[in-house]
Design a binder for these strands. Structure first.
Lengths: 243, 243
DNA sequence: TCAAAAACGAGAGCAGTGCTCTTGCTTTTG
DNA sequence: CAAAAGCAAGAGCACTGCTCTCGTTTTTGA
């Protein structure tokens, strides 16, 4: 399976990685719109047509970068959730604290990789239909949040929020599909909170907060805490602990 | 001021409008990235270089479209707020209802004009620095929400939310700058709610809800109501009225 | 083992892009 | 009514994504 059969195959995965690395570099420097296949090839000392042996089109290269970005931000979220697991639960609202920690980790990844963030959470490229490869990695962050709520629910520490009747069937479907063990009402609230969290990050990253908000980290923290509360995780006091 | 001096000047504003219209048409059809100056010129029966008499660069054309889009969505929000003003205030939480009405109007504009929405609330184009012309129109939607909260505050119907200490000075600055008459704590909550509202819309429009959420309008409505509550507008029952 | 097949890099070339510059013509202005 | 400014057209530059062909190298299967 993972055995490399020959020198050619080995070279192929190396070149593929080199192309993605250089592409990522250009992405970080100039943004997705200015990512040029020819420039990548030039920088790698190959002719542009050779690059098509590895990626059949520019869109496919972008898709690969999208998958990597989703994986990266997903890994960051998972790591933040796991790290918190190790710490002693001295706080009064451990689940909410954990939620906030993950949210902050996601935000910080976005601040560190704005163009990659824009690639996955900004406007989709024109006519671009997300291939199936992306849906798995794309859901990792969401699953982390679901897991936090599930843990709270299992510990009987979840205050199940109210649920609008029109949302019930949809919430139950979502629960069965990817959030087994979480009350449907919490799943519905969670999905909304998920979108709202990224709304905060996107506004900050895309410049909507310019000349408006200065204290962005505290604002985000406060809002993330409020969102945690909205899905049923017990509230934390406004004064943040451990900083 | 608004008098048209000669035939040439008249022609100029007509051609400028025609260019913007055709550009907007292509934007709606294919998205910002595929908007081509040459294609616009071609469609208008002129040569591409002639277009540079009206817009010095592609970015300037885009900026004009951005300003128009901000104005359009701002006008929609203002109209929704005003329309609501006329109606009898039978509901138990008129300010929250009004907030939700404006939020829904904004969302519907986005659904009707996805590419224009992406232009203003999606990832900024590479290296694009928003010119000063855009900041005025860009703030119209936000000002509508501020006005709703201000009205509630003046009527003594605002439950001022708690405010994290680190946010106080920033909140006071924002209050003085563009939200006179609103308690600073509400301003801080409002800015966060503003970003979160657009997070919900963006996730829906940019495909993040695909294969996840089906009942998007109810979910949005519920979240918008929760956000109204978070800035201090009295809660509405989960069962929506008047539908 | 050794020929057929597949993978590969290089180059030329096509259609398209944003943008500049020059050349005539028309409208406006002093 | 001449000078100045505004305008459309065309040629051209440097760039893009992508295709096709042509030798060369590596892998494969009988």
């Amino acid at each position: 399976m993972s055995t490399i059969r020959g020198a050619r195959e080995r070279a192929r995965i190396e070149v593929t990685a080199a192309i993605k690395d250089e592409a990522r570099k250009q992405l970080a420097a100039e943004g997705a719109a200015k990512l040029s296949l020819r420039a990548v090839a030039r920088e790698l000392g190959m002719v542009s047509s050779a690059l098509y042996r590895y990626f059949p089109s520019r869109d496919d290269l972008l898709t690969a970068l999208i998958v990597d970005a989703f994986d990266a931000i997903g890994a960051v979220a998972e790591r933040a959730a796991k790290e918190w697991e190790g710490k002693e639960r001295e706080g009064k609202a451990p689940h909410a604290e954990r939620w906030i920690a993950v949210a902050c980790a996601v935000r910080e990844w976005g601040l560190a990789h704005p163009h990659e963030y824009a690639l996955i959470y900004g406007s989709p490229v024109p006519g671009y239909i997300a291939p199936m490869d992306t849906v798995g990695p794309a859901s990792r962050v969401g699953l982390v949040f679901i897991d936090i709520v599930r843990t709270a629910s299992r510990a009987e520490e979840l205050a199940v929020p109210p649920l609008a009747p029109e949302l019930r069937s949809d919430a139950e479907r979502m629960t069965a599909e990817f959030a087994e063990g979480v009350p449907p009402a919490a799943v519905a609230a969670l999905v909304a909170a998920w979108a709202q969290l990224f709304g905060l990050i996107s506004f900050e990253l895309f410049g909507q907060f310019n000349r408006v908000v200065e204290a962005r980290e505290p604002l985000f923290r406060q809002a993330a805490g409020e969102l945690a509360r909205s899905v049923g995780l017990r509230a934390v006091e406004v004064e943040p602990h451990q900083r």
